[in-house]
Design a protein around this nucleic acid. Structure first.
Lengths: 214, 214
DNA sequence: ATAGATATAGTCGTTTTCGACTAGACGATC
DNA sequence: GATCGTCTAGTCGAAAACGACTATATCTAT
């Protein structure tokens, strides 16, 4: 069912989705995605787009329809989706909605080694994260409201932003709790954590002392 | 503050974290990460590890300490962290804990184009996702309990799994709600969504009809 | 005693991905 | 009419990441 995709960059899914509606040239794909806010959910870089388009064409999932030229602007190739492309798009979409995929986040990497910092500093940094997350969340909220009202987009077309929002909110709540537990010392493992770092500090102080009084 | 890292793969953070404790050779890094479950939060491939180690050495964040050989096994280079490496590790760690980073998930990409499937099918796929998520969550829970009891690891050292768990739970709750709203038709935009697909179906039926009765 | 499985310890070539750069068109502004 | 910034529309080379593959050692069950 979920055999390896020949073109696996999610941007390829977006390209096929757009061409499913109507033929376009690459630059138009970019502007359309931007208009609809899809660049918030699918990483979009020109350099990746052109190579993804090439790869899709190589696999015969899309095909060039015509080459147009306006004035002295560079030529633009208009692409359309093929039958195989439609199938691949739907199959991929089904897989993405159905099967959870393990993702590695930057924050999880940081959390994995949090014990490398002294607890007080960690709590402070996480406290700052709480503030930053609060800001991002309220910005996202007003952004969603704005877009929904201004362009009369139904919730359905902004569903991925809602998903992102609830994940951020869940993280916020969790980090708040974590900070509290570090601050009041109820997190399991706190004593060892403090000990390690106070010993490190003592060692540093002694080393400094020795250098000053040899 | 958050200037571009010379080596940006989170695996490099893990390598520095390990060498912060004591010198090791690459293969030992892998086994240590596996033992501690860090391969669940930091993507770990041999092929990436060796190039990350090379890059770290190039940047003088780590350095070879000795080359040992046991029997006929290939030589193993033992690396240690440098002063610059310690600094880079701490600075990076601080940044990761403090600053939320925008991440692009596969599921968000799928959600972005959910309207490409008919609502009934989408609801069914998401329902299946709910079941799969439930399974993953209960597995994670028992896995955390098991590891914590068997190795007496305090919660602090499993904190990144807890983070992953609460994110999965939040997604589960949200997807459950979404399925309900699609099924009972209360999701805003449902009528257009249904219309588009019933028209597509009609068109398909007509095309088929014409081919059969030319 | 030995076949087969698992653990150890990587290498290699290809494909992806990205960041930096280019370059004309067009409108506004001084 | 020179210049400044922004929009349109990409190209290019380097770096990163991955999957597939290799090869020996050691354990284990028959």
């Amino acid at each position: 069912m979920s055999s390896k995709r020949k073109v696996s960059n999610p941007l390829a899914l977006a390209v096929m989705a757009l061409l499913y509606e109507r033929p376009m040239h690459p630059y138009e794909m970019v502007s359309t995605m931007r208009e609809r806010g899809k660049h918030e959910s699918v990483r979009l870089r020109y350099s990746s787009l052109y190579s993804v388009v090439d790869a899709l064409q190589r696999e015969a999932l899309i095909e060039p329809r015509e080459v147009v030229r306006e004035g002295k602007r560079p030529e633009r190739t208009v692409y359309g989706i093929t039958g195989a492309g439609r199938e691949e798009f739907l199959d991929w979409l089904r897989e993405l909605l159905r099967e959870p995929v393990k993702e590695y986040t930057q924050f999880a990497a940081g959390l994995s080694f949090i014990a490398g910092l002294p607890p007080d500093e960690a709590a402070e940094l996480l406290g700052e994260r709480v503030r930053l997350l609060e800001g991002e969340i309220s910005e996202m909220r007003s952004h969603i409201d704005e877009v929904a009202k201004q362009f009369e987009l139904p919730r359905l077309l902004l569903i991925e932003s809602e998903h992102e929002l609830i994940l951020k909110e869940a993280e916020l709540e969790w980090v708040r709790g974590l900070v509290r537990e570090i601050e009041d010392g109820t997190l399991e493992g706190m004593s060892q954590w403090r000990e390690i770092h106070s010993e490190l500090e003592k060692a540093r102080a002694e080393a400094l002392d020795e250098r000053e009084n040899p």
